[in-house]
């Protein structure tokens, strides 16, 4: 489903060039649960941005569902993000001036779904994560765990094939973190491909395959 071949990424920060990825190749099959683990500065976030179509590689090829997307335009990438990928971030990244329901509706708005349909869908997703009593709360009125569950509902709203989770437990207490991980496991069991980015080995153990990355290169791959 995802095939990355010899990808590099170089950032130009003024005069200094920084190579975050130095030639990474990775295959991810449909229905996999992959953890990408590495310390900070290892290039894992860069890799996630590329996998998530938020950024394009400097060199190398990226095939998404067998299509090479290196030359895709911004709008085409936005379409992939909207329809194929669900994002879960460490800092939740909910919109602070929208309430819970509206946050979950957002990807569907950009997809052009009509109001009634998307409200129904968002409501159902929030029920699934146990937040149907918090529809009119803004993110600041929710706990971290609740916010992350809203974010999961939002990520699932577009019925994506892939969930990209960037340190989803990083800002949560142990209990909420476990809840989030069990939701991800459950999703994977139902067939969604999950890519989990973390620096925490314990979290990575939830996955079926662990890819370790360091200094912009893949160090080892191991199946759990």
């Amino acid at each position: 489903m995802i095939k990355i071949v010899d990808v590099t990424k170089t950032y130009n920060t003024g005069k200094v060039k920084f190579q975050a990825l130095k030639g990474v190749s990775l295959d991810i099959e449909k229905g996999e649960f992959v953890a990408i683990i590495g310390p900070s500065g290892s290039g894992k976030s860069t890799l996630m941005n590329i996998i998530g179509c938020l950024d394009l590689p400097t060199t190398g090829k990226y095939y998404f569902e067998d299509k090479e997307i290196n030359n895709y335009r911004e709008n085409q990438l936005a379409d992939i993000r909207n329809k194929k990928i669900g994002f879960i971030f460490q800092k939740f990244n909910l919109l602070s001036n929208l309430n819970t329901l509206e946050n979950v509706e957002l990807p569907l708005i950009y997809r052009g779904m009509d109001e009634k349909q998307r409200k129904e869908k968002a409501l159902k997703l929030l029920q699934n994560v146990g937040l149907s009593n918090h529809l009119n709360h803004t993110p600041s009125e929710l706990s971290g765990g609740q916010q992350q569950r809203v974010a999961i509902a939002r990520a699932l709203a577009g019925e994506p094939q892939i969930i990209l989770a960037d340190e989803p437990t990083g800002n949560l207490d142990t209990k909420s973190g476990k809840e989030v991980l069990s939701i991800l496991k459950e999703l994977n069991r139902k067939g969604t491909t999950i890519i989990l980015i973390t620096h925490d080995m314990e979290v990575a153990e939830s996955a079926k395959r662990i890819v370790t990355i360091r200094d912009g290169l893949i160090l080892e791959e191991r199946v759990v």
């Binding site: 998530g52 936005a78 919109l95 957002l106 990807p107 950009y110």
Partner: peptide, 16 residues
Amino acid sequence: TREIGIRKAIGAKRKD
């Protein structure tokens, strides 16, 4: 800026 980033990440196009 961050809000714009979030919107774009979940599929907002330039036009939106």
